[in-house]
Amino acid sequence: MPNESEISASEISKWLDSAGHSREWLADQTGTHPGTVAGWLAPGKPRPIPIPTLKLIERLMCDDLLGAPNYSYAEAAVIRRAMVQEGYSSLQDFVRDAVVANAQRIMDAREKIVELSTTSTAAGGFTIMRRGSIAAGGRSSADVEETEIPVSKAYKADHYALRVSGRSMEPTIPDGSTIIVKAFKDQGFPRKGSIVVYNDGLGTTLKMFDYAPAQGDEEHARNGKIPVLRSINPEFPDVEPLEGGRIDAVLVEVV
């Protein structure tokens, strides 16, 4: 729990104003007199708030932010900002996805033996398999022509290279670039803003994964949003809904 100094009188005043609560309401919630609350929130030299009452106020503030008073106010504020940034309105959905992602990160970090997709060369460098090209602006053939290319470091076994053909992801990924991607095997969707290899069964394309407001009762809608694919280059179509395809891989870096 935070100590008395972690929530100031000015923060409490701002919370009351933003939440539409009156000083009389806070007095009722804390079992005190409105004059006492006025003393707590007085500008300049406010009267100290008893620690048990401060903890109660913190819970009320946290409940307004998340709908669940299980965190400190500082923690709740950070969580709420992250939820808004990632397009979540439900704390339960946000916590679920965060727990799964963190569990995967921990397991990856604890791998003692890492199988590499790269091969050492006699000259001391590395090579990785390039699985053909990926379209950036249309669809590339599902057929792949594999060839080894030189890279500057070793990558895990689930990584591979692709050559980018097209300008829809410029300037982030120029036409003709070689990219390293990681096979996407997770259930659900990657992080918002991830660059992904999308496969609709007819071919593959490189897009940015995002969310857009749902229109009516659209399939895959969550928290009023649906997953979509975007182009970075404004000259190309901005949004393509995911319609039965799959995400094959997620961008690691441009080489």
Rank of each mutant, 00 (worst) to 15 (best):
G124W: 05
G124R: 09
Q85D: 12
I134Y: 06
A157D: 11
S90I: 10
G138Q: 01
G124L: 07
A82T: 05
L91Y: 13
A82H: 01
Y73K: 04
E75N: 13
G132C: 10
D143S: 14
M107N: 08
V114G: 03
S141V: 03
A82G: 00
E146Y: 03
S90Y: 05
A101T: 14
M169V: 14
I128E: 04
D64I: 03
V164A: 04
A68T: 00
P150C: 10
A82Q: 07
T127V: 15
A109N: 10
E146K: 03
V78E: 10
D143I: 12
N102A: 11
G67W: 00
V151T: 05
Y88S: 07
A103Y: 06
I79M: 00
A161N: 07
V151D: 00
E146G: 02
E146A: 09
G124H: 10
R130A: 14
L66R: 07
D158P: 04
R130I: 09
S141G: 07
A103V: 13
I134W: 05
V151G: 02
G132D: 05
L66M: 05
I57W: 02
I106Q: 00
S152W: 04
N102S: 13
S168P: 01
T147V: 15
S120N: 14
I57H: 07
V95H: 01
T121C: 11
S72E: 03
I106P: 01
T127S: 15
Y160R: 03
L162Y: 12
E146W: 04
A123W: 10
G166L: 12
K156E: 08
F94R: 13
E86V: 09
E145C: 02
S165D: 14
I149A: 00
R96T: 15
I113Q: 08
D97A: 12
S140E: 05
I113M: 03
E145V: 15
E145K: 11
R105D: 00
A74R: 10
Y73S: 01
Y73T: 05
I128K: 14
V99C: 04
Y160S: 12
T118C: 14
A123V: 12
T119Q: 09
A161Y: 08
S90Q: 10
D97S: 13
V114F: 03
A136I: 12
S140C: 09
T118K: 13
T127P: 09
A103K: 10
R139Q: 06
V78W: 03
